[in-house]
């Protein structure tokens, strides 16, 4: 009795492990385009860090712990121009507070062990969020960890590679690789647009608002992004509500 009970338990455990491993690999596979998109941008960050007289370890520490592209570029720029640590941290907060929005959307569709949530939350970026939240099925923590870790490895390895070997890359190729980040954004968006043209309306509206806000320079860059997202989503939702009533 006891033996058969144990083997049943083991079987379900083995099945569970296999299931989680599958989800983890799905996450890794879907993270590969992010790895490729991050790598050259991270190379650029590594180059910048070196030119700002940071050490190899310091550059790696930035990418490993902060793991937020735009704010890292801005921080190193400010550091190089002699701005104090306190104001750099406040600026970072303004730029990265948009993660509240991203994490809310990611967490809304997440199922699984709450114990692992703090680790999964660490890897939320514009890109991992975009991949995860545009999936047709909900996902668990193993999927999210696979996705986030792959993206994180691309960011960290690109930073270190840029610091070490960026000087060897032909500058022409280095310049061209900057386009990859945007190809990744487009690659995530396009299948959604083909499924539902309203996606194009939301994305286009948000882009135009963002462009206008950046052109006026009223808001810091991070806030312009947050503002564009909120206003466009609210406008589209309002239009939808009105057409439903009519």
């Amino acid at each position: 009795m006891r033996v058969s009970g144990q083997s049943r338990k083991e079987r379900t455990l083995a099945q569970r492990v296999r299931h989680h491993r599958g989800a983890l690999f799905t996450g890794v596979a879907e993270g590969l385009p992010i790895f490729v998109g991050y790598f050259p941008v991270a190379v650029a960050f590594g180059l910048l860090a070196k030119s700002a007289a940071l050490s190899f370890g310091e550059a790696g520490l930035f990418s490993a712990l902060v793991f937020a592209g735009a704010s890292q570029f801005i921080a190193v720029n400010l550091l190089a121009s002699g701005v104090g640590i306190g104001s750099i941290i406040v600026t970072t907060f303004l730029i990265n507070s948009r993660h509240l929005l991203l994490s809310t959307a990611v967490a809304a569709r997440l199922h699984g062990t709450r114990r692992l949530f703090p680790m999964a939350a660490f890897g939320v970026t514009d890109e991992t969020f975009a991949i995860a939240t545009t999936r047709s099925e909900p996902y668990g923590t193993p999927y999210l960890m696979g996705l986030n870790t792959t993206a994180w490895l691309g960011w960290l390895s690109g930073t270190l590679a840029g610091f070490l070997a960026g000087g060897f890359m032909p500058s022409k190729l280095q310049a061209a690789l900057g386009i990859l980040l945007y190809v990744m954004f487009l690659g995530i968006l396009m299948p959604q647009v083909r499924k539902d043209l309203r996606v194009l309306a939301v994305a286009g509206l948000s882009g135009v608002i963002h462009w206008a806000l950046r052109a006026t320079g009223w808001l810091p860059d991070g806030w312009a992004l947050v503002c564009a997202i909120l206003v466009s989503v609210a406008l589209i939702d309002g239009l939808k509500g009105r057409s439903r009533k009519a």
Partner: peptide, 18 residues
């Protein structure tokens, strides 16, 4: 509403950045 956020974010990241 939350489902629309990624599309809006991608649009704003693409325009004018690209």
């Amino acid at each position: 509403l939350l489902g629309h956020i990624p599309h809006a974010a991608l649009g704003a990241l693409l325009i004018p950045g690209c």
